[in-house]
């Protein structure tokens, strides 16, 4: 697939799913500590999300980096918008900003988990 086709495919995934995590491994079996941290946070917050394992396809692994213009994986998208990588998502979660963002974008999560 060309880079253009990969980017179109990525665009479709983030349009079709409210929350998409591009990660190494799967939500059940993360294969990198950074990916695992975001999966753990989303799991804790009870967020329903699509996990895309970039290790399954080298073109997706490279494609998501150029699509976002971001050199590392994991990458979290919410409602089609890039949120950040592991450090940013963890800081946002600890500050309660991630929960606020989910709330403002109308993404369902477990409200009893308001504090980190």
């Amino acid at each position: 697939m060309s880079q253009q086709e990969i980017h179109d495919w990525i665009r479709k995934q983030i349009a079709a799913n409210d929350v998409v995590l591009f990660m190494k491994g799967t939500k059940q079996f993360p294969q990198c500590g950074f990916s695992g941290q975001i999966a753990q946070i989303l799991g804790y917050l009870g967020v329903d999300y699509r996990d895309i394992n970039v290790l399954d396809d080298m073109s997706v692994r490279d494609g998501i980096k150029s699509f976002t213009n971001w050199p590392t994986i994991p990458q979290l998208y919410v409602k089609g918008e890039f949120v950040g990588g592991c450090d940013i998502v963890r800081e946002m979660f600890q500050e309660g900003e991630l929960q606020q963002m989910l709330e403002s974008k109308g993404v369902a999560y477990d409200k009893s988990r308001l504090t980190a």
Binding site: N69, W70, P71, T72, F82, V83, G84, G85, D87, I88, E91, M92
Partner: peptide, 18 residues
């Protein structure tokens, strides 16, 4: 923003990150 800050660092270290 956090994303803007990380992008600034990533741009400076693009050779190393690649």
């Amino acid at each position: 923003s956090r994303v803007e800050r990380h992008r600034m660092v990533n741009a400076l270290l693009s050779d190393e990150l690649a």
